[in-house]
Amino acid sequence: MSFNIDWTGEFIAFFALAVCAIVGAVMALNFTKVVHMALSLAFTFVSLAGLYVVLDAEFVAFVQVLLYVGAVTILMIFGIMMTKHQDEGQEAARPLLETLAAIGCLCLLAILIFAIRDADFPDPAGSLPADTTREIGKLLFARMAIPFELVSVLLTVAFIGAVALAKREEEPK
């Protein structure tokens, strides 16, 4: 990897946040307790939210924190609490599966990185509008109104379904 980088503020911020995200993800895979894993991933999600801010996507970053860190992770933790868990590694390992998975993932990563480095990205011909949140609002409620409504319907259905699935008490058997 070439290191002819101009150390702009953006890059420093990116670098720190990227390290945080990767560390969080890797730690999530290494922990043995499930709650630790979940929290570690929450850390990754927060780091990603930071990256979104760096990328001029304040609204998305806000939603990221709200949704992932606030909702999904908490939902998962509730799920963890409602079920009983054994710690990872207590059962017999599956060395073949893990080895093959590692090889496969590394190969995929290598291919992706190769593709990224090989690709030629022209400089952007313009820039994002200054106030992205306002623009998103305009767009969502004007041009994107129908997809927006559809997604809301989807979300409603999913939540009702989730309630129906999880709610069923033990029926007398």
Partner: peptide, 28 residues
Amino acid sequence: MLASYLTLAAVLFCIGLYGVITKRNAII
């Protein structure tokens, strides 16, 4: 900068994939 972001995304994606394949716990 774009390449850096893409690379980071690829790394995260592969870590996630590895987790999907190897982790026993359904929540993870």
